[in-house]
Amino acid sequence: MNRFSYARPGSVEDALREVSSNPAAKFIAGGTNLVDLMKYNVERPTHLVDVTRLPGLKEIGEAGEGGLRIGALVSNTAAAYDERVKERYPLLSSAILAGASAQLRNSATMGGNLLQRTRCYYFYDDATPCNKRAPGSGCPAKEGVNRIHAILGTSEHCIATHPSDMAVALAALEAVVKVAGPNGERSIPLADFHRLPGNMPEKDTNLHGDEIILAIELPEPRFAKNYTYLKLRDRLSYAFALVSVAAAMEMDGDKVVEARIALGGVAHKPWRLPEAEELLRGKVPERALFEAVAERILDGAKGYGHNDFKIDLARRAVIRALSQAAAGTPQSQVDKRIQ
């Protein structure tokens, strides 16, 4: 780990000042990803700004119009087991509990989870080129070992995936990220929070370097009954998703009012395709329809060799997740048998 100085500001204003005066400064909260990356020399901040003591960011409270506001410093554990989250947004609770381990969820925060970086092998290995870590150096993953890499929204510069489970559920729920910066506060819809790699893979998100996440706001709950978070991975627990699907439906009798589908493990951001979701609107859910939705979502998917299997895996995972959501039988995060 490189040397760095340390500050523990007591207000959001002071925290913002600490980073605005030093472009090599970084905020740290749970540290479960940043400290790891620093041990690999992938992140080398010269100044760490400890935000864990900032006031007012550890609360979960009501937001306007029946929504819920989850402070950026709320731990993943606290959010997943919060009674309001479990009752109104069980999809979010399920996705959080599908990720990492109990120890990591205790340390990791809601804001930090959004900002975690890809687990691409080449990004983590500073002996290899990587456009995300060292812009312009190249992307060995395209012709290299790419079993865990993206199949949608890739660019010639980067085929990394975003590793979060939580963010996939937040994308399906159309959460909004509340941030503060030197010019005040702004809201970023979750769909616009993470970026596709394009020709700037070093930029994971649209959060500016001098901004801080204050909270995640969830809109009025509509998907507490028909939902699932289906995560497929190389071992049954404590592994990143090869493919995951957050699926949710609002039903009126036997017809779908609105459906949401977000995929994890397949792209540089949680992957949503609203036009595919539209295929379900006003319809009685049935397998042929799910197959059409899955085809639409995976249309244009591209494999890079080792990850070719993900295209078919994702297609089938979408169909299975939609079946689970329609039946109101969400995937258990304990019993991993897929019903």
Partner: peptide, 20 residues
């Protein structure tokens, strides 16, 4: 794994200075 304020965490990823 250790218990920090009663909760289990990975002590390898915790900076001691932050646990003041």
């Amino acid at each position: 794994t250790v218990l920090l304020d009663g909760e289990r965490i990975n002590s390898c990823l915790a900076l001691a200075v932050m646990k003041d």
